Amino acid sequence: MKWLAGVFAVLLCSTSALAQVAQGGTGQPGILMITRNDAYPGSGCDIGLVIQGRLAGTLMAGQSASFNLPPGEIAVSLTSSGPGACAAPMASAVSQSILLAPGEIKQYRIIGTEAGYRLAPIPLY
Rank of each mutant, 00 (worst) to 15 (best):
M1L: 15
M1Q: 14
W3S: 08
W3H: 05
A5G: 05
G6L: 09
G6W: 09
F8H: 08
A9P: 01
A9G: 13
V10H: 02
C13T: 07
S14F: 06
S16C: 12
A17H: 11
L18Y: 12
Q20F: 15
Q20A: 14
Q20N: 14
V21M: 05
A22H: 13
Q23G: 12
Q23R: 14
Q23C: 11
G25F: 13
T26F: 11
G27Y: 06
G27T: 08
G27N: 08
Q28G: 05
Q28F: 12
P29W: 07
P29A: 07
G30H: 01
I31Y: 06
M33I: 05
M33D: 06
I34E: 00
I34T: 00
I34H: 01
R36M: 06
N37K: 14
N37T: 09
D38V: 10
A39S: 10
A39Q: 04
G42I: 00
G44S: 15
D46G: 13
I47T: 03
G48S: 14
V50E: 06
I51F: 13
Q52F: 05
G53W: 11
R54A: 10
R54L: 09
A56D: 03
T58H: 11
T58G: 04
M60S: 15
A61I: 11
A61E: 02
Q63R: 08
Q63A: 09
A65N: 01
S66A: 10
N68L: 12
N68D: 06
N68V: 03
L69P: 01
P70H: 13
P71H: 10
E73V: 11
I74N: 01
I74M: 04
A75C: 07
V76R: 01
S77I: 03
S77E: 07
L78K: 00
T79W: 13
T79H: 13
G82A: 09
G82S: 03
P83C: 11
G84A: 09
C86P: 04
C86Y: 15
A87F: 11
A88H: 11
A88W: 08
M90D: 02
M90A: 08
A91M: 09
S92Q: 07
V94T: 15
Q96Y: 05
S97N: 07
S97A: 15
S97W: 05
L99Q: 10
L99E: 11
L99R: 07
P102H: 07
G103T: 00
I105T: 05
Q107W: 02
Q107Y: 03
Y108F: 13
I110G: 00
I111Y: 02
G112T: 12
T113A: 05
E114Y: 08
E114K: 08
G116A: 11
G116I: 05
R118H: 09
L119V: 02
A120V: 02
P121A: 03
P123T: 02
L124R: 01
L124T: 02
Y125W: 11
Y125P: 02
